[in-house]
């Protein structure tokens, strides 16, 4: 599959940037406005899904190799767990918001570990959702290949 028409390709390569930016915004401001790591992560993933639909798998594979993607997935999860452990190390207990007094209310840098957690979750969700869609599409291709043979 070599992707869709030129129009679609061109537009989606532009829109991609906007979507990614929007996703990052949702993630970063998750502690101030509606949204957060999960929603932002899904938006990030959807930008790549769009690219995949428009340009085909091989293109995306060059941009974001599968191995890197799965590493990002693990990294996000580990990072989130590590925030919890850091709470144990530096604060009073596991998942303690040990940075809660850092920064001022209603600013980007505020509310301690919450934005950090949002970033970790955003990374994790984005990577894993894209991964699963990618794998699903690969799998379908394989099985249809089997049929042709």
């Amino acid at each position: 599959m070599k992707g869709m028409t030129v129009i679609v390709k061109t537009i989606s390569s532009w829109v991609k940037v906007l979507i990614i930016l929007f996703g990052i915004y949702i993630i970063l401001f998750g502690h101030l406005t509606p949204g957060g790591g999960f929603a932002g992560g899904v938006i990030l993933a959807s930008s790549y899904v769009m690219l995949m639909l428009a340009f085909g798998r091989e293109f995306v594979q060059k941009d974001l190799p599968l191995s890197l993607d799965s590493k990002l997935d693990c990294l996000g999860a580990v990072a989130f767990a590590m925030i919890a452990v850091l709470g144990y190390v530096f604060g009073k207990s596991f998942f303690d918001n040990f940075l809660s007094q850092f920064g001022r209310h209603l600013r980007l840098i505020s509310s301690g570990t919450i934005p950090l957690s949002n970033i970790a979750i955003g990374l994790k969700v984005g990577a894993s959702l894209f991964l699963v869609i990618f794998i699903l599409s690969t799998f379908r291709r394989d099985s249809s290949d089997d049929k042709q043979e």
Binding site: K71, C74, V78, A81, A84, V85, F94
Partner: peptide, 18 residues
Amino acid sequence: LPAFVVIPLIAAFILPLF
């Protein structure tokens, strides 16, 4: 107590990297 959950979780998150 959290160790019972967190230790296997972190290990599980790291393992696919191998």
